[in-house]
Amino acid sequence: MSQLELDPVTAPVSPPRRAGRRARTSAFWLALPLAVAAVAVFVLPLTGLLPDGGQNLDATRQPPAFLAGGSWAHPLGTDKLGQDLLTQFVSAGRLTIVIGLVGALVAIGPGTLLGLLAGYFRGWVDRVISILIDAQLALPFILVALAIIANRGSSLPVLFLVLALTGWAVCARVTRAATLAIRERQFVVGLRAAGASEPRIVFRHILPNLAGTIVALGTLQVGTAILVESALSFLGLGVVPPMNSWGSMLASGQDELSQAWWIAFFPGLAITVLVLLVNLLGDALLTHHDPRKRRR
């Protein structure tokens, strides 16, 4: 705060937010490879550069090009049916990314809304929602997933339902806490004194102030969704053929590990790197929007 209050009209603007800028820079460098990967898996199939993905029983379990016995016709090798692994890898990556993004959205949407309602209205609304949050967090997700999938079968909509059910509670809890803090700020009282309605205060003032936190939470949720999907697909409960995700590639590669380790290795590596990058990005965004690390 400026101590030179001689002329309030020309008092200097507070100095640039260095810490915030640093967080923004690291967020950019983390987002860049993610964006390149996302574009690549959507654009590569359109270029015609990828090998034909069909079966070829004369060339099963070929190693990647950079190992002895491999060829550039199949850069990542082939599986037990002679299908090109790079082609599979790209199309599986596409579905994995879509599942990560949609899975995060379906969890963040209801989570944010319920957290906002609980935090703003408190009272019995808060009590009901808080009990639901605690109940949800006490349930092991794999049990929930098994119950739903056993009942409804595996399909993408069911997978998103599972992701929403397992993901909303964390987001609701964080949003609720942040809302509780913001609703006590005096500008909320000022707005009420100006005659602002409750929905206006919640959606035009509290929600925008939570936007940074929600984006960061959403990013972390993308990582979680990808991991959940991979785990479910590995168990044969997630993505089922003819669709393919990195998790399901991992699953189909597991019984070949001794003869053709590369079938499972590349999807596994991709999941690890992707989730790591997404989580680091989420952390960077969260740091950027953490009120304690932000200058006023």
Partner: peptide
Amino acid sequence: RPEVQVVFQDPHGSLD
């Protein structure tokens, strides 16, 4: 409500 307006202690907390 607009007939009563409030000025608070923490001016930064009173502005969105």
